[in-house]
Design a protein around this nucleic acid. Structure first.
Lengths: 139, 139
DNA sequence: CGGAATCCATTGGGATACTG
DNA sequence: CAGTATCCCAATGGATTCCG
């Protein structure tokens, strides 16, 4: 009787809950944060240094989202200077596998993707006058 | 010898290729488009209707990206009115499994996530004056 | 140290109109 | 039909400052 809220099982519908949940983790930083917390508890500053390129703002926002969704537990120690630790919850740990699968895929198909990109860019990017110039020179 | 380009195997580094590849598919629409193409070839308009809430602009952009990365093949039939068909490439098909795993996870943990959200929102969202008012009334 | 708040530039993304 | 082009607003996200 708990399934009452799931008005739409069709993932292509906007009000489909599983689609909404999916969108919660399908962003640039969430997979990396989960990946970083895989080994255990980490402090805010540690995460900031570990995940190259993320800003304090985005790390904070991502962690808040993960906390709200029950994937990460946030523990504040009332000391000065403050210490805040983040840990994957049991629910969050169940996400490690799917996220890792995605990362493995990325690693295994690096080159194919890179080659496709290069081919695509060469094919269309080249302005008309280059092709024309080539034709003219050939003549 | 093809691994030369992968300057950083560490996924937490910005110049890590597998991280870049990962980011290519970690957006709101890409998983849904892949999911929609899972059953086979689809036309642009079909995709537009199937994926509820996506705009022409975003569908076009997402498909272009997928095409550039070699995950989707785009075939144009020179007829009027034009017919354009999209199909997952063999490379794209290898992505079905990981994407599906993510979707399955979302479906299986719907309620836990929803409950966490509700608890989180009740806990902090409540403005100060409500708590204060409650205290005042108690007196 | 771990944010929150502010400012600001860039991008995302919808709506509409137009085209081959 | 399958886009592209334009306009325009909202969200993203970096840099910086401030605070307990």
């Amino acid at each position: 009787m708990e399934t009452k809220e799931q008005t739409q099982p069709d993932i292509f519908q906007e009000n489909c809950l599983s689609r909404q949940v999916l969108q919660l983790i399908a962003d640039q930083w969430t997979p990396l944060v989960i990946y970083a917390l895989e080994d255990g508890t980490m402090r805010f500053g540690q995460l900031l240094k570990r995940i190259n390129g993320i800003s304090k703002k985005m790390l904070t926002r991502t962690l808040r989202s993960l906390e709200r969704n029950g994937l990460v537990q946030r523990v504040v120690y009332p000391v000065v200077p403050p210490v805040v630790e983040y840990t994957l919850t049991p629910l969050g740990q169940t996400l490690i596998e799917p996220v890792r699968a995605l990362q493995v895929w990325a690693y295994e198909h690096l080159q194919e993707v890179a080659q496709s990109q290069a081919a695509y860019d060469q094919r269309d990017q080249k302005p008309l006058y280059e092709a024309t110039a080539a034709l003219v020179q050939q003549r």
